[in-house]
Design a protein around this nucleic acid. Structure first.
Lengths: 167, 167
DNA sequence: CCTTATTTGTTCAAATTTCAAGGAGGGGCC
DNA sequence: GGCCCCTCCTTGAAATTTGAACAAATAAGG
């Protein structure tokens, strides 16, 4: 007595309920945990750290603002503020785009790269301790598959042109 | 050439790397998605909505602030601000605790309960579409187990007395 | 060329979150 | 009672995020 009503607002089964609750708790605690760990050791929240990571993997460690926003799954507005803050820290630099006068590149500075290499081990350790060390091989595999499915569903995988999820 | 170095900063395997990235993307997109859905349909972000849900499940729809903070996995400070906001909306009311003059109860008002029943179906639909509809039965089961493990690891399950994770 | 959309990135104000105190009450102990 | 320590919750300021609005530049069509 919990599942469906013809077409009405189907509820969640008890197990789905439990699963959803567990997800919310885990993701809340984890993001909190990482934010604190990184704020303490790297002086920035997880989102900012992730921006540096994405930049570090890009060719010449630089990316157009919009591209960076897409890869980090955040809005352009949020990115503008974030980059402004990271720029003050000297970890990122802005550069004009020659071919498009509207465009801006976000560039990871040497200093930014340095912070990354200094703090990456600690961050990785935190992630490993929180997740991988606790899961069986099958669970590790499942988690990856599941998260890719969820992410794909929330983001038009054929995006690039239209990005309704980018506001 | 990616796993370990005796005791040094072990990295993540390529697969762990992919999994972690997928997790970050999925959780970011999902939280964003739900925040927008609820902000639009219920006039509040997901965290606030969750507070109302937790209250609605408590006896007499009331909980001590600290207890509510623990169940919602947020800090007391954050909760104070949140309840102040929900109070302005008329969805939550504060009440003094008779037995402990320091204590406060957060009580879900009828109005708050009304908002919840009105918006719950939409929220549930969003969750179902984003997660359960896309996963196989095995995956649904795995997800629950995995998230419970992660949550448990991040939160001293025998807590109640000491809550270092609560700042 | 000109006009009209679209895209790019920023900015402002409001909302939310974090972090460091702080006020007040409770409880143990002498 | 008096003292000390801990808990409960709030507060204020700074940091971050959101959402709407905007200027500039580009693209598209005629």
């Amino acid at each position: 007595m919990n599942t469906a009503s013809a077409d009405g607002p189907r509820w969640l089964t008890d197990e789905e309920q439990r699963t959803w609750r567990a997800y919310v708790h885990a993701s809340t605690l984890l993001e909190d945990h990482l934010d604190r760990q990184l704020q303490r050791d790297a002086g920035m929240p997880h989102v900012y750290y992730h921006l540096l990571v994405v930049l570090s993997e890009a060719p010449h460690r630089r990316l157009r603002m919009t591209e960076l926003a897409m890869r980090a799954k955040i809005t352009r507005s949020r990115l503008s503020h974030a980059v402004a803050r990271l720029e003050k820290n000297g970890w990122v630099r802005r550069e004009d785009c020659p071919s498009d006068k509207r465009g801006q590149f976000a560039v990871l500075t040497d200093q930014g790269h340095e912070v990354l290499t200094q703090t990456a081990p600690g961050h990785v350790r935190a992630v490993r301790q929180a997740i991988f060390e606790r899961l069986s091989p099958q669970q590790r595999e499942s988690l990856g598959e599941i998260m890719e499915i969820i992410a794909e569903g929330l983001q038009p995988k054929d995006a690039g042109a239209d990005l309704p999820w980018l506001r």
